[in-house]
Amino acid sequence: MNLANPAEASNRIQEKPRGSGKAAKSILIGLGVAFILIMLVLPLITVCVYALKQGWEVFSGAITDPYAIKALQLTLLATVVAVVCNTIFGLFASWAISKFHFRGKQFLTTLIDIPFAISPIIAGLVFILVFGRIGWAYDFLQAYDLKVVFAVPGIILATIFVTFPFVARELIPLMQAQGNDEEEAAALMGANWWTIYRKVTLPHIKWGLLYGVILCTARALGEFGAVSVVSGHLRGKTNTLPLHIEILFNEFQLTAAFAVSSILVVTAIIILILRNIVEFKGRKEESEHVR
């Protein structure tokens, strides 16, 4: 096909779905929109509507409830620690995997993915088996008066476990695509690893890194399964926001449950917007520099 004239070429592509194709196109789009409306938009609207059903007083009462605030604080703490840990881990892991050759590299890459494959509830149970009363580390922890399970450290550990792969997964393909040439060139001129990392590697991966951090944050905020197992549901102590919502729901305080939910919904939407901005900027920059 002669693509000498790009305008002509794009016309040809657009001309294709005429007639019966046009109907198929509208049906497909209609189905897609309907699906998204029923599965995503409707529930989100319901949450917000339900949250405000009994008026602003009840809503603000539910979200300023001391237990709700405690739960929010714990959720934020777990999220921040998990994101920091996984970012540091992700940076090192992606560097090791993409820039060096070593035995067991494939195995390590697979290991990183385990949290994606394993149900969060199993992750929670694992921590109970290791650190709990029946766990093998229990005596040791007891000796130093450390509490992991049914306490804040357990919640943080579970959150870290569940959000473990996000940053590393985002960075590894990026860094592999970049190759080692630039690093090699910098090393040949006598730059040390820190200079190379800061000046050559990091500028390349910064948007990917940010993207990974955002995904990691979103997942950490909403984590329910693994945290539920290790938390013990102690109100004001080991309750995260999602767990708090569950408790409210089980107590038939539907409006309060939805009110607290709306906090998570709003953060989710903010994160989604941030994610899109980062993705857009990253793509734009990549299309500029990687040619």
Binding site: D181, E184, A186, G190, V200
Partner: peptide
């Protein structure tokens, strides 16, 4: 290098200056 391996996030000046900056 074969594909030049220029530092793509640095300007021409910074690219040329890199070796000297490192020193």
């Amino acid at each position: 290098f074969q594909n030049y391996a220029l530092f793509r996030y640095m300007t021409v000046f910074d690219n040329v200056a890199f070796g000297l900056t490192v020193e």
